[in-house]
Amino acid sequence: MAGSRNAVAQYREYSMPFITLSQAPHLLPDVARWYFDTWGHRTPGATLEDEQQRLEVFLHDNELPMLLIAMQDDVPVAAAQLKFHERTERPERLHWLGGVFVHEAHRGQDLAARLIETLMARAKGYGVREVFLQTERDDGGLYARLGWEPLERQTHRTGVPVRVMRRVLPLTGKPPA
């Protein structure tokens, strides 16, 4: 766990404002393009327009689900989501981290870790007790370093094998304003 604390300490040095998609709805096409080009194109018949429609669920204030965007000089450079029911075969697994994307020019600066930790802090504020994710990295990669525990291997609907992981959050605080 010491490695996890070091990762947290390192990313705090890198400062960049975060906003929700609901605060900047004009960024929806940019984020949709990132997601479609990275993952969405793998789904047979899926289109960029489908991805844009899927992201409309994040266009509201002060509630879940939430899509957080990192900005640099008024340009989006990274995003991550806290959403509901990523894998419908396990309905008891309600809250999911997903869509963690960092533009290639900003990778290697612990920005993904900072986005994830910010989303987890907000999730705790909403009383979320546990969050799940799926990753193509069998060892969990960044998520393992941030304290996520591996649960099982599954196959994504696109046929890609994924590792499902979980993180338990301590209950504290009230929803953020």
Rank of each mutant, 00 (worst) to 15 (best):
R166D: 00
V75M: 02
E49S: 05
A7W: 01
L68Q: 04
Q81A: 15
A113F: 03
A121F: 11
W148K: 07
L48F: 13
F58G: 05
D110I: 00
P76V: 08
G173I: 10
E152I: 04
V102W: 07
P17S: 08
G108L: 09
R137G: 04
V57M: 13
G108N: 13
L151K: 03
L28K: 14
A46H: 07
D74N: 14
M120D: 03
R5C: 04
P170R: 10
T155V: 15
G40N: 06
E13H: 10
G127K: 09
L27F: 15
H26C: 02
Q134H: 07
E89A: 15
E104F: 11
V162L: 08
E89F: 12
F132L: 02
R54T: 04
I116F: 03
P65I: 03
Q134R: 07
V31Y: 02
S22I: 01
P161S: 09
V31N: 02
E49G: 03
V75Y: 04
A177T: 08
P91Y: 06
G141H: 07
A112G: 14
I19E: 10
A46S: 15
K174E: 14
V128E: 10
T135V: 09
A177E: 11
D37H: 03
L115N: 11
R122F: 06
T172S: 13
N62D: 12
M66G: 07
L94Y: 09
R90M: 05
H26L: 06
G40P: 04
G173A: 10
Q81K: 13
E92H: 11
P44E: 05
Y11Q: 06
G173F: 10
Y35V: 06
R90A: 14
A177Q: 12
R5D: 12
L133D: 00
E117H: 13
T20F: 05
T38E: 12
R90G: 04
H95T: 00
Q53M: 09
R107L: 02
L27N: 01
A9G: 02
I19T: 12
E104S: 15
A123D: 07
V100Q: 10
P175E: 02
D50V: 01
E56H: 11
A177K: 11
L28D: 00
E130N: 00
Q10Y: 03
L48V: 01
G141S: 08
H60P: 05
A9I: 08
H26V: 01
L21C: 03
V31Q: 00
Y143I: 00
A79P: 03
G108K: 13
A32G: 13
R129N: 02
G141D: 11
R137T: 15
M120L: 15
Q53C: 06
D110F: 04
K83F: 07
E149W: 04
T158V: 11
S22H: 12
G3C: 08
G99H: 01
